[in-house]
């Protein structure tokens, strides 16, 4: 695929995804994953999760941050500019049109019915993606990632712990784990020497 086609695909994809992200920033992550990981194969599964963590812990809208990261990875700085454009254009166009008659839009029965239906669709899409992603964690056959996953879930869901704190703590756990594994390995090598 030459670079012009790549830019075109990046723009069209992010434009379409952004036009469909109802219900908050996280919704774009499963949609992006489906397109860029499964369909186009431009990003790896683990990489997508890393990019999500970066998008989540940076200031600004998650959808914008995630598209910057995806664009940057696929085509560098110009790629990032194109994906940002693709992401902000749909809301700009839609809100510009709606702002002319926003009271009528807000109270329209059919719009509200479609919205209620789409909310269920979004919930189902997220549920599907979470099942796929959680599977990869269980397949590692290690206890620590599973504990981190369940622990973070409880912290976010039931104790409303700030997401930045969770990211810091889990990063530290990962670092400590790597350090410990390295030490165990070194000791093992030492024992091998007669």
């Amino acid at each position: 695929m030459n670079s012009l086609q790549k830019y075109k695909t990046l723009f069209i994809t992010t434009f379409k995804l952004s036009a469909c992200t109802f219900g908050g920033g996280f919704v774009i992550i499963p949609l992006m994953r489906k397109t860029f990981v499964e369909e186009l194969g431009w990003i790896e599964e683990d990489e997508m999760l890393d990019l999500t963590a970066i998008a989540q812990s940076s200031p600004g809208a998650i959808a914008v941050n995630a598209s910057i990261l995806v664009g940057y990875h696929v085509a560098g700085f110009p790629g990032a500019m194109i994906t940002v454009l693709g992401t902000v254009l749909p809301p700009i166009i839609i809100i510009s049109i709606i702002s002319m008659f926003y009271k009528a839009f807000r109270d329209n029965v059919i719009v509200n019915m479609a919205m209620a239906g789409m909310l269920c669709g979004v919930a189902a899409v997220i549920c599907d993606v979470v099942i796929n992603m959680a599977k990869t964690i269980f397949q590692k056959k290690r206890l620590l990632p599973v504990i981190v996953m369940l622990g973070s879930f409880v912290a976010v869901r039931f104790f409303s712990v700030n997401i930045i704190i969770i990211i810091l703590v889990c990063g530290l756990i990962g670092a400590a784990d790597t350090w410990y594994q390295g030490k165990v390995k070194k000791r093992g090598e030492k024992d091998d020497i007669p």
């Binding site: 499963p30 890393d50 989540q56 979470v130 973070s152 997401i163 990962g174």
Partner: peptide, 12 residues
């Protein structure tokens, strides 16, 4: 990053 991935799934 390996420590962060399970947490990201939990947040989603």
């Amino acid at each position: 990053l390996a420590g962060l991935r399970p947490a990201v799934i939990a947040m989603i």
